[in-house]
Design a protein around this nucleic acid. Structure first.
Lengths: 182, 182
DNA sequence: ACCTGTGAAAAAATTCACAGCG
DNA sequence: CGCTGTGAATTTTTTCACAGGT
């Protein structure tokens, strides 16, 4: 068993917050005791949609793509990278851990053949918008975008942006505030 | 010149929001015209603390470290990766674009000698906490942490966490909600 | 005695709407 | 006329605090 307070400490928040959040998905704690770890874990997996695997295509076989492909926590959670695509002829025909790197021209064919629902976009900013449009048109439902551009896509395609520079800038901002206070 | 509405469209928010946010740092727009692009850019650089360079050490020369080291937007914004550290003897002694990869045992020495203020932690979860503590003790002011653990550090050290799995999970959650609505 | 679940209160963020300047 | 800057209204999020199970 684990209490809301113990969870809060790990997550960097408060017990009340944890209870409010969890209660919005139903009440599965036990008064006086806390939450059972296994049921809680199972319920969160359900909420996050991790009880079934997701077919993922990685678009962009550069350094960021490489890091993401090797990231063990993706596979752990049921994200299956079933295809890798790139435009560089020097990379096409190669393979990472047995998964071939294919020509990005085959994007639509791969999405169809492999029932890809999620695309991880790890390409330069200039290439992102057209590739995102093609992925969306091919039927992809969600895009995890590492390019520093806001993608304009038709309704119904979920986009999540990750901007690594922003995180460092936030740190820089916080440290500058400290300096200013002195 | 650019209007708050035009900025909002690019950023995915509203004009009122942009104006409120900017006004909290003073008023530097022109009524009837909008914001001058150059002055606005300069002011934001100031606010983010990007008008001076930051000395950064990259701890962890794995795939994520490699991607970050090559990320052009860090250098652009004045983040100087002045040292790379790793514990793998196979990597130590090598170099990335002229920057040598040194033994992580030299962390304290490097932080002192190079006046490192920010550490990018790109190491496995199990190694993160002790390395963060050492960096903090050596005088580092901010840590950008890619390991999926909540670092416990003394007051006064800023920590920003980046968790790549969380972003994919959020996408999975959103798509599951769509499925449930059907 | 302990800890959840949740209304009620408080705080924070967002939106509205418009006076005022260019 | 156009667009900022900003109080006021509204909505959302967080915290409080305690009734009610175990």
């Amino acid at each position: 068993m684990v209490s809301s307070e113990a969870l809060a400490e790990r997550a960097g928040t408060t017990g009340a917050q944890v209870r409010k959040d969890l209660s919005s998905f139903g009440s599965f704690g036990t008064r006086g005791r806390g939450y059972g770890v296994d049921p809680l874990h199972a319920r969160i997996r359900e909420i996050l949609g991790l009880t079934r695997p997701w077919q993922v295509a990685l678009v962009g076989a550069g350094r960021i793509g490489s890091a993401l492909h090797a990231y063990p926590h993706f596979r752990d959670r049921g994200f299956r990278i079933v295809a890798i695509l790139d435009m560089d002829p020097a990379k096409i025909g190669g393979a990472w851990e047995g998964t071939p790197i294919r020509d990005v021209g085959e994007l639509e064919a791969v999405v169809g053949a492999e029932s890809v629902e999620i695309v991880i976009l790890a390409v330069p900013a200039s290439a992102a918008q057209p590739l995102a449009e093609r992925a969306a048109a091919a039927g992809v439902r969600g895009i995890l975008n590492f390019a520093p551009v806001r993608l304009r896509l038709p309704e119904g395609v979920e986009v999540n942006n990750v901007n690594l520079a922003v995180e460092l800038e936030a740190l820089s901002h916080a440290l500058s505030l400290e300096d200013a206070r002195r």
